Simulated scan of single mutants.
Amino acid sequence: MTISQSHFGQSLSYINKHRSFYPSSRTIIVTGATAGIGLAVAEHLLRSSEQHLLVLTGRNADVLREFHSRYPDRVITEAGDMSDLEFVSAIAQTIQLEGRLDGLVLNHGTMGSCFRIGQMEVEDWENTFRVNVTSCVAMIQSALPLLRASHGRIVLTSSGAATNGYSAWGAYGATKAAINHLAMTLKNEEPEVTTVSIRPGVVDTAMQGDIREKFLKNMDEKDQIKFSTLKKDGKLLPPYKPGEVIAELAINAEKDLSGLFLR
């Protein structure tokens, strides 16, 4: 899969003119931007009076087209599969960013097949890691030269599952633990870049719907009860709550947060 749109606005000169007119504008890539938390991140950044420029990726091409129709000069969109590492690497390399990328929000992810380890196909485990971890590494690698130059920020959407061993969540939880370790490693290896991972809480997204409708049977009874009643009991967070926090971290995260797993 290739990137079909290579620059903001109607010409290659648009981005520099925009940055001159809006000096507080930031250029940010957001993955998983077509639903849930990622959608909330994108909406929050686009509402800002600072007129941020966004590169948005996700699986829902209709949502991406809507973004582009509303913000034709400020948004570059591309639907794609984050297990396609060639596509992932091309996002930061192919688009004309004129030497600057200020933020990278890596919000995409999959629960995988949600089987217990003794039942799971190894290929399912491997694919979950490819989407949730390897694709993040691929995108970070391609974006690092620009992020170093801007003293930019990377925000990784993690999960409480990184530190809780839920039955049937082994692959998902392991990937989120790996994401947290990735943030810690980048703190040491890339001191010019601020990298944080964030636990967004239990959020009312499609993932929670899949847990209730598809995966409960594979979980322990106590977890079945917990996750089957969260929505009914009004205990799920609306996506905009963590979404706005993540968006602000992509712009303003302080250096002393680098490497941390934030709640």
Rank of each mutant, 00 (worst) to 15 (best):
I3R: 02
H7G: 04
F8N: 07
G9E: 08
Q10Y: 04
S13Q: 09
S13A: 13
I15N: 04
N16Y: 00
F21L: 12
Y22W: 14
Y22G: 06
S25M: 02
S25F: 01
V30P: 00
T34R: 06
L39V: 02
H44C: 14
L45D: 11
L45V: 11
L45E: 12
L46A: 10
L46W: 07
R47G: 15
R47Q: 15
S48G: 05
L54Y: 03
L64K: 05
R74V: 01
V75S: 11
I76Y: 03
T77H: 00
G80M: 01
F87K: 02
V88C: 05
A92K: 00
T94M: 05
I95M: 08
Q96V: 10
L97I: 10
G103Y: 02
G112S: 11
C114H: 06
F115V: 05
R116T: 12
R116M: 06
I117G: 01
M120G: 07
V122M: 14
D124C: 03
W125E: 04
E126S: 13
V131F: 04
V137T: 02
M139H: 05
S142P: 00
A143S: 15
L147F: 03
L156K: 08
S158E: 09
A161H: 07
T163Y: 09
N164F: 14
Y166H: 13
S167G: 07
G170Y: 01
A171D: 12
Y172S: 10
Y172Q: 10
K176I: 14
A177E: 15
I179H: 11
H181M: 15
H181P: 00
L182A: 10
A183I: 08
A183R: 08
T185F: 08
N188P: 00
N188R: 09
N188W: 02
E192V: 06
T195E: 11
I198K: 07
R199N: 15
R199P: 00
P200Q: 10
A206P: 01
A206F: 01
D210I: 02
D210V: 03
F215D: 03
D220T: 11
S228D: 11
K232Y: 09
K232W: 02
G234W: 07
P238G: 07
P239G: 12
E244V: 13
L257K: 08
L262D: 10
